[in-house]
Design a protein around this nucleic acid. Structure first.
Lengths: 332, 332
DNA sequence: CTGAAAGCGCTTACAG
DNA sequence: CTGAAAGCGCTTACAG
C-alpha cells in the first residue's frame, strides 16, 4: 500500500507537508501543493484512516443501535441516518438488538473499544437496562424513537407518541364514534393513553376490556386479536390499531366478520407503511420517523464539533393525521 | 482513558506482557497472568481497537453494500450478516446505495480507506459499474443476491433466480393453466426466463404481451399493471408476480375486477414477505435470502483466515415452492 | 516466560 | 511556508 511517505518522496517534500496539503490545516505554497497533489494522483494514494484515527482520536464513525431492520420503520430511519452521516463524512456502524439485551450489551462494549465518535440509540426496549454503562462514555449519546420515559442523562429526539394516539382518538370521536376499541402492541403505552385522553375530553371512557394486545406484531397477530374482539364486542364501531402490521390483520378480520370498512367499521392506524397500501386505503396517524432520525443525527453531529455533549433536551416531533378511506361516521 | 501501559504499571510488568495475556499469543506464567487480569479488572481497561488495527492491519470490520433497507428483503439479509459477523467478532459497516451509483462509488472509496477487512455486495444494480475499482482491492470481496450475469473475478453466492421463475411456472402449468401472464420488476429477467422455460417444455409460449413491467415496485404499481392486464387480456387464468409487493397490488386488482382468487384467477409470487400475509394466503416461491446471506458472509470470513481470496466460485441457493391458498386449477 | 526495541501511518505543536 | 521530533496505543519479532 502506498503511504504518505511515498507521496512525500515523490514530491520531494516531507510527509508533514503532504499532511498539510491534505488536511488544509496549514497553508502550503501553491506550487508545492500542486506537486504534492500530482504525486498523490500518480501514486493513487489514499489516506489510511485507521492511522489518522489513532493520531487524532476521532474515527469519523458513529454507531446506531436499532431493534431490527426487517421492517420498514427502522429501515427507513437507518437510511436517513446514513444520509446525514454521509454529508458529514462519517460512516455507520449498525447494530440491531433483536429483543436481546445481552447481545445489545456486547455490541455496546464492542463499539466503545472501537472508539465510535458518537452513538445513536433507537427504541426503548433492548438497551434500556444497559444505559448506565454509558454514563461515563467518552462520546455523545442521543436517544430516539423513545416511547416510554427516557432517562434524564441523555438528550432524546422522539415522536410525541401520546399525541399520535390522541389524534387517532380525536378523529374517531369527531366522526361520532362512541363505542371504540384498541388493538395495541404491549410497548405502545403512550399511544393508548393519548387515545383514551381524546375520549375522556368528552366524558367517555375507553374501558380496559376495549384495549386488546396482539400476541405478536404481525398481520396474523392482528387478525386473531381483531377477530376475538369483533366476536365478543360486536357493538364496536371503530378500531384503533397502534402498529401498521396489526392494521392489515384487522382489515382482514373485518372482512371475515362480514363488516365492510369503513361503513360497518372504521379503522385507523399508526404510520401505515407504504407497502400496506390496501383498498380501502387506511386512515392513519403518520409518524415522522425520517425527520426524527435526521434531527437526532444532526444533534449528535453538532455535539461532535461543539462542546462535546449535546444539550440535555427532549425534542418531540409532531405526528399528523392522514385521513384516507378507512374511517367514516358510524352507521346508525 | 486507561491504556495498556497503565495496566502494566499496576501489575508490575511491561505492556508487552499485558499484550501477551490479552492476545494469548504467547504463554504467560499463570500467576503473572492473574495479576495482569486483576489490574485490567480494577482499572476497567478495554483495549483500543484502533491502535490494534494500525499495528495488525486488520480492523475486524466488514463493509456491506445493499440497495436499501427500507424493505424486508435486504433488511433480513443485513440481520443475518450481522449475526455471522458477530460470532466472528467483526462489526458491520453498512452502506445503502439507493439506486445511486455515484453514492455507491463514494462509499466504496470511504470503506477502502477505512481499511475494512472484507466487502460483501448485495444486489446487481448500483455498484455494477464501479466493480473495476475493486480489481486491486487488498481485501476479499463477495457478491450476493446477484440476478444478472456476475463478473468473473469475484465469487458469488446467490439464488437460482431462473429456477425460482421455473418453479412458479411449472406449478401453474401442472395445475393446468395455459393462458398465463407475468407482472415483473424490470431487473427480474432471470425469473421471467425461468417462468417461460417451464411452459416451453410443454410447447407453450408466454408471449411478450403477457409480460408486463410495473412502473414501480409498490403495491400501487402492481395494482395498475394488473388492472391493465386483466382489462386487456381477461382470458388469463393465472398471474405470476416477481416481487412480493406487486403481488399485493395484483390481489387488490383481482378483487376490483370481480375475480376471486384462486377460483377465477390464480396468483403466485416470489418470497412473499411475512408482512404481506393476506387472505387467501399467497402461494409463492420462497427465496432463501437468510441462508444466502449466511453463506456469503461465511465465505468472506473464511477468506480472511485462509489464503486471502475466496475460491472463485458461483454458489446457487435453491428456491422452494410453497403452495398456499392463491393457486388452483383454472375454472373451466 | 518476560522485557527492550522498532514499527504500524498518520497528526500536532514547535523551530527555523 | 517547510522540516525534525514526538506521540497516538497497540503488536511483533527478537534477545535474554
Amino acid at each position: 500500500m502506498v503511504t504518505m511517505q511515498d507521496v512525500a518522496e515523490r514530491a520531494g517534500v516531507t510527509k508533514q507537508t503532504v499532511s498539510n496539503v491534505i488536511t488544509g490545516r496549514v497553508a502550503v505554497r501553491p506550487t508545492t501543493a500542486a506537486r504534492v497533489r500530482a504525486a498523490i494522483e500518480e501514486l493513487g494514494y489514499t489516506p489510511n484512516l485507521v492511522a489518522r484515527s489513532l493520531a487524532t482520536g476521532s474515527t469519523r464513525t458513529v454507531g446506531f443501535f436499532v431493534p431490527t431492520v426487517a421492517g420498514a420503520f427502522y429501515g427507513e430511519m437507518v437510511e436517513e441516518v446514513e444520509d446525514v452521516l454521509e454529508e458529514a463524512g462519517h460512516h455507520l456502524l449498525l447494530c440491531t438488538t433483536r429483543l436481546d439485551g445481552e447481545r445489545a450489551r456486547r455490541h455496546l462494549a464492542g463499539l466503545t473499544s472501537r472508539s465510535v465518535d458518537a452513538l445513536l440509540i433507537a427504541g426503548d426496549q433492548d438497551l434500556l437496562g444497559h444505559l448506565p454503562l454509558l454514563s461515563d462514555a467518552r462520546f455523545p449519546v442521543v436517544l430516539c424513537a423513545w416511547e416510554t420515559e427516557a432517562p434524564d442523562r441523555f438528550p432524546v429526539v422522539t415522536i410525541d407518541y401520546e399525541r399520535a394516539g390522541y389524534l387517532a382518538g380525536r378523529h374517531l370521536r369527531e366522526l361520532g364514534h362512541r363505542r371504540v376499541a384498541v388493538l395495541a402492541s404491549p410497548a405502545h403505552t403512550a399511544r393508548v393513553a393519548g387515545f383514551r385522553r381524546a375520549f375522556a375530553a368528552d366524558g367517555l371512557t375507553v374501558s380496559d376490556d376495549a384495549v386488546r394486545y396482539a400476541a405478536a406484531p404481525t398481520p396474523a397477530g392482528g387478525f386473531a386479536a381483531a377477530e376475538a374482539l369483533l366476536a365478543t364486542d360486536p357493538g364496536v364501531t371503530a378500531l384503533f390499531t397502534t402498529h401498521d402490521v396489526l392494521a392489515l390483520g384487522a382489515l382482514e378480520a373485518a372482512r371475515a366478520a362480514g363488516r365492510s370498512v369503513p361503513h360497518d367499521l372504521s379503522l385507523i392506524g399508526q404510520d401505515i407503511s407504504e407497502v400496506l397500501l390496501t383498498h380501502p386505503a387506511l386512515t392513519t396517524v403518520s409518524i415522522p420517523k425520517r425527520e426524527m432520525a435526521r434531527q437526532a443525527t444532526e444533534l449528535l453531529l453538532r455535539a461532535l464539533t461543539k462542546t462535546g455533549t449535546p444539550a440535555n433536551s427532549v425534542q418531540l416531533m409532531r405526528p399528523e393525521l392522514i385521513v384516507r378511506g378507512s374511517t367514516a361516521p358510524p352507521a346508525g
